[in-house]
């Protein structure tokens, strides 16, 4: 088979199979012939190695088939709008929770600083001996770190969930309009193993420190106030001080 015979059969078969952009395909095979002939092969050898042009033509996917699904697209889009509404509300909720956690973390850090430095802006922090305040300060620092770690992980989670939802959105429309579907994305964030380990140990460490310091602070306060309910003795929460 010569180059021209090969290309003619290929062109005819492509046309018969209703393949878009047939010229582009023919061009690729023409270039293949050109490269091989430059290497000293004959047209017959090249054509034989390329394979049967009719078989090759059947391996190109027809563009006409995909259009069949077009009718379902409108329904899918309407359905997706409703899903988007619910998903949007859900994401708003998740983001609100993220903000709450961030505020919680920052306010804990601020209170911890006040406790350490002995400041009491607007007399918001009730009176107590400095060492009790320092231990409570340490415990709140740990709580602040713990919630900051939670914040970071949760932010990664929301981000991945949104990406995953975006991919689902894209795929649903693509499937309805007969386009190629992309691989779906995992819901959970895939952080590097090192980051995962760091997050885990930071969370564990701060949780332990928080619990220990909180209990220690309570015990120290009870002892120094000489009463189980030391907040009564020190006049917290609007109680009048006992002494």
């Amino acid at each position: 088979m010569t180059k021209n015979e090969f290309l003619t059969i290929l062109a005819n078969e492509l046309k018969k199979n209703n393949i878009a952009d047939a010229e582009d395909i023919i061009n690729e095979y023409e270039q293949h012939f050109a490269f091989k002939m430059a290497d000293g092969f004959t047209e017959e050898e090249i054509a034989a190695k390329l394979g049967n042009p009719a078989v090759l033509a059947s391996q190109f996917e027809s563009a006409g088939e995909a259009k069949k699904y077009g009718g379902k697209k409108a329904i899918t889009v309407i359905g997706l709008c409703f899903v988007d509404l619910f998903a949007g509300a859900f994401f708003a909720l998740l983001i609100a929770w993220e903000i709450i956690m961030a505020v919680f973390s920052v306010s804990n850090a601020v209170i911890a600083v006040c406790l350490f430095s002995g400041m009491s802006p607007w007399l918001l922090i009730p009176p107590m001996p400095y060492w009790c305040a320092a231990v409570f300060g340490l415990s709140l620092t740990a709580l602040s770190v713990l919630s900051a770690v939670g914040c970071i992980y949760f932010a990664a989670f929301i981000r991945q969930l949104m990406r995953s939802y975006g991919r689902f959105h894209h795929n649903t429309i693509a499937a309805a309009s007969g386009n190629a579907v992309l691989p779906s994305l995992a819901i959970h964030p895939r952080l590097p193993a090192k980051t995962n380990r760091r997050i885990r140990s930071a969370a564990l460490f701060s949780l332990t420190l928080f619990v220990i310091c909180f209990i220690l602070g309570m015990i120290m306060s009870m002892i120094s106030a000489g009463a189980l309910e030391f907040w009564h003795a020190w006049g917290w929460f609007g109680y009048t001080a006992a002494n």
Partner: peptide, 30 residues
């Protein structure tokens, strides 16, 4: 395209022409 075709047929026993439908499919899938 020709490079891909040469690379594959050097390693695997296939007809040289098979590569082009594959490349086109990969392109249509993005």
């Amino acid at each position: 395209g020709y490079e891909v075709s040469e690379y594959l047929s050097n390693h695997i026993d296939i007809a040289d022409g098979t590569v082009y439908p594959i490349l086109r499919k990969l392109k249509s899938e993005g």
